[in-house]
C-alpha cells in the first residue's frame, strides 16, 4: 500500500497551485496553472497533474487544505486556511526562526511577521490598489508590449535608474509613457517598474532582521529579490519554488490534522 499523502491547494487571483507532500514533508508533486474562471475545475486539473508527478492517486490523499481567494471553491478540500496563514507556515518550514515574510501575489501583497516559534505577530496586506503586485507588472508588460517572462532578463540589462513616483497603476502607466517619450531604454524602464514594486512593499511595514520572500512574482522575477537585497542591505531568503509557498503551507496544515 502506498504511503499517505497530504495536499495543499492555493487558488490565487492569478494562478492556482497544488502541492503534494509525503509523511516526511517532502514535496513529491506540484502543479500550477492559470486560475481562470472555473476555480473548481482548475483545482481538480492541477490536482491530477500533481498526482501524476507524485505517481499517486486520489485515494492516497489523507487530507486536503485549501487557501487563497478561491479557497472555498475547492470541492475536495477538508478545510480552509487563509493565504496569510499558509504562506507563513510554508516559509517558516524552510526557515524556522523569527522571520518577516514578504509575499508578492497576483493581486495582493502580504508582509507577515513570525516569532521564533512560527507564530504570527502581525500581518499587513496592501490596500485595495494593485500597485506593487503581480497585476501591476502584468499591466506594465502589456503597456510596454513585452512578454511578462522577459522582464527579468531585461531588468538585468538596465544601465540607468528610472524612477516612477506614483502610487497608482494607471498613473504609473502614464509615467511609463512619459519615459518612453523621453527616450528612456526599455530595460531601464523595467528596472524602474521593479523599483516601484519594491517601494510599495517597503512602505507596508518595517522589516525584521531576517526577510523571506515568496510568491509567483518572486519565482519569475528573481532579479527583483536581488534589488530588494541591495535596497535593505542584507540577504533575502527565498524558499524552493516560492510560488508554491502558500500551497506548501496548506499541505503542512493538512498534515497537522493527523494521518
Amino acid at each position: 500500500m502506498a504511503s499517505p499523502i497530504f495536499t495543499g491547494v492555493d487558488i490565487g487571483a492569478s494562478r492556482t497551485k497544488v502541492t503534494i507532500l509525503d509523511p516526511q514533508k517532502n514535496l513529491i508533486g506540484r502543479a500550477e496553472k492559470k486560475s481562470g474562471t472555473d476555480f473548481s475545475d482548475t483545482a481538480v486539473s492541477c490536482l491530477e497533474s500533481a498526482l501524476k508527478m507524485a505517481n499517486r492517486s486520489r485515494t492516497d490523499i489523507v487530507k486536503t487544505v485549501s487557501t487563497g481567494y478561491g479557497r472555498n471553491n475547492v470541492t475536495f478540500s477538508d478545510r480552509t486556511k487563509t493565504e496569510i496563514g499558509c504562506h507563513a507556515k510554508g516559509c517558516y518550514f524552510h526557515f524556522p526562526k523569527a522571520i518577516t515574510v514578504i509575499d508578492i501575489g497576483g493581486q495582493d501583497n502580504k508582509v507577515i511577521k513570525l516569532d521564533e516559534k512560527g507564530n504570527r505577530i502581525s500581518f499587513k496586506m496592501n490596500r485595495k490598489c494593485a500597485a506593487g503586485t503581480g497585476a501591476f507588472l502584468e499591466e506594465m508588460s502589456m503597456r510596454l508590449d513585452i512578454p511578462l517572462e522577459d522582464m527579468d532578463s531585461l531588468a538585468r540589462k538596465a544601465t540607468e535608474q528610472v524612477e516612477l513616483g506614483s502610487y497608482c497603476t494607471v498613473f504609473s502607466a502614464t509615467e511609463v509613457l512619459e519615459k518612453i517619450r523621453q527616450g528612456k531604454k526599455v530595460p531601464d524602464i523595467v528596472k524602474g517598474l521593479y523599483l516601484s514594486v519594491i517601494k510599495r512593499l517597503l512602505e507596508m511595514d518595517a522589516l525584521g532582521d531576517t526577510v523571506v520572500m515568496s510568491g509567483g512574482v518572486v519565482a519569475y522575477n528573481p532579479y527583483l529579490v536581488k534589488m530588494v537585497e541591495e535596497r535593505i542591505g542584507r540577504e533575502v531568503l527565498v524558499p524552493d519554488f516560492p510560488q508554491y509557498s502558500g500551497a506548501f503551507g496548506a499541505a503542512l496544515f493538512a498534515m497537522e490534522g493527523g494521518i
Partner: peptide, 28 residues
C-alpha cells in the same frame, strides 16, 4: 480599509480574508 458609506472604497473579499487571518493569528 473601507468606508462608512461609500462601498466603492471597500473590498469585501480582502476584508473577509484579513479578518479570518486575524482570528487565526489570535488562535495561534
Amino acid at each position: 480599509n473601507g468606508d462608512l458609506n461609500d462601498l466603492r472604497c471597500y473590498s469585501e473579499e480582502q476584508t473577509k480574508t484579513n479578518i479570518e487571518a486575524f482570528i487565526e493569528q489570535l488562535e495561534e
